[in-house]
């Protein structure tokens, strides 16, 4: 009999892998460190997803219930893998709750960590309460409370969204583009304009990367239909004059330094490597790449192949990734793991 496949992480990539394996009749064990499944979209309380416009709790929630209802998926939440030994086809995984299980392969769908804006203190987060992150705005919207200034609960009249917070910045050792923030920010800007039609929303950008069809649906539409203003500028500092927030920037296209007051400043925070990647790499014996994500080989010979045979990786564990692509990768890597395991099992005999 073929052993089940271990999936680590219950976010979009992990759920998708479990769904796929279940669909073809393969058993899997899904280990999730939180007490519930869903990953960042559920745990962090995202609102409407890009580009489907579906609420995270419906879209990802649907994936969660399909997986939970499947007889072929053995969900172990509130647990971590602490030890992983053996060879392809015959691995043993030990969990933090003391259980151990035999698996033929492993899929690491361990995701990312949101950038902590405290690492960029000159942009005011941690100093001024009305400087918030995109995740906080998502939570304001998904909770049904609407967008408000945390300092006093008022509806903001002027909002600035700063792109590339924790991305494309050598000063803090994060040179990568986080891929999703341009589109997500344009989406949030439209949500704010819809909820608060009197509120002006500005987006401060270096380049707009609403790739593919998102160009039309987010970048163009946010301007044409929602009158969101884009200023090509990375701001230097966010301060306060005691009444409002002030941001200091250069409008690089007009070439003058500017200081503009706002009620609320939103950091479009990027995607860091999972803070636990060091220990994940150690437990599973896989390499990390230079930036600290889980390293994988080129895709031409197979998807999600790590440095350790029989261990695969999918989704944002590889680097900044969208939800849709994480889902696609989860399914693709399920195929890699499944294709390998009978061969490996045969070889092992």
């Amino acid at each position: 009999m073929t052993e089940p496949i271990l999936i680590v992480g219950g976010g979009p990539a992990g759920l998708s892998a479990a769904q796929a394996l279940s669909a073809v009749g393969r058993n899997s064990i899904l280990v999730e460190k939180e007490d519930r499944l869903g990953g960042a979209p559920i745990i962090s309380g995202y609102a409407k997803l890009v580009p489907s416009d579906e609420w995270a709790k419906d879209a990802i929630g649907g994936m969660v219930s399909r997986v939970a209802e499947s007889d072929l998926v053995d969900v172990r939440s509130g647990a971590r893998v602490t030890e992983f030994t053996g060879a392809p086809g015959a691995f043993t995984a030990t969990l933090s709750n003391g259980e151990s299980c035999q698996v033929s392969a492993a899929i690491l769908a361990t995701g990312f960590t949101h950038f902590d804006s405290i690492n960029k203190p000159e942009w005011g987060f941690g100093t001024y309460p009305d400087v918030v992150t995109t995740v906080q705005v998502e939570q304001m919207i998904s909770s049904g409370k609407g967008v408000y200034c945390p300092s006093d609960g008022r509806a903001p009249e002027r909002v600035a969204i700063l792109l590339c917070v924790g991305s494309r910045d050598r000063q803090i050792g994060r040179e990568w583009c986080s891929k999703i923030c341009c589109t997500v920010s344009a989406n949030i800007a439209m949500e704010i304009r819809e909820q608060l039609p009197e509120c002006s929303v500005y987006i401060y950008y270096m380049d707009i990367r609403t790739f593919g069809l998102n160009e039309i649906k987010y970048y163009w539409r946010s301007q044409e239909e929602y009158r969101v203003k884009y200023i090509k500028s990375r701001v230097a500092e966010v301060t306060s004059d005691g009444n409002r927030l002030l941001i200091k920037g250069e409008d690089t296209l007009v070439k003058r330094p500017i200081a503009i007051p706002f009620d609320m400043v939103v950091h479009a925070i990027g995607m860091d490597p999972n803070v636990e990647n060091d220990s994940i790499a150690k437990v599973f014996g896989v390499d990390l790449q230079a930036e600290g994500n889980i390293a994988h080989q080129s895709n031409y010979g197979g998807t999600g192949v790590t440095s350790r045979p029989g261990v695969f990786v999918a989704g944002a564990a590889i680097g900044p990734e969208t939800i849709d692509d994480s889902i696609a990768q989860g399914q693709a890597v399920a195929m890699s793991a499944m294709a390998l395991s009978p061969l490996a099992a045969a070889a092992a005999e």
Binding site: G45, V132, Q136, P150, I172, V275, G292
Partner: peptide, 19 residues
């Protein structure tokens, strides 16, 4: 708590996660 719930582990301020 909600505002910072995503900081799941204590991240030392400004520490390079990637050493």
């Amino acid at each position: 708590a909600t505002a910072t719930s995503w900081v799941e582990l204590k991240i030392d301020k400004r520490a390079m996660l990637t050493n």
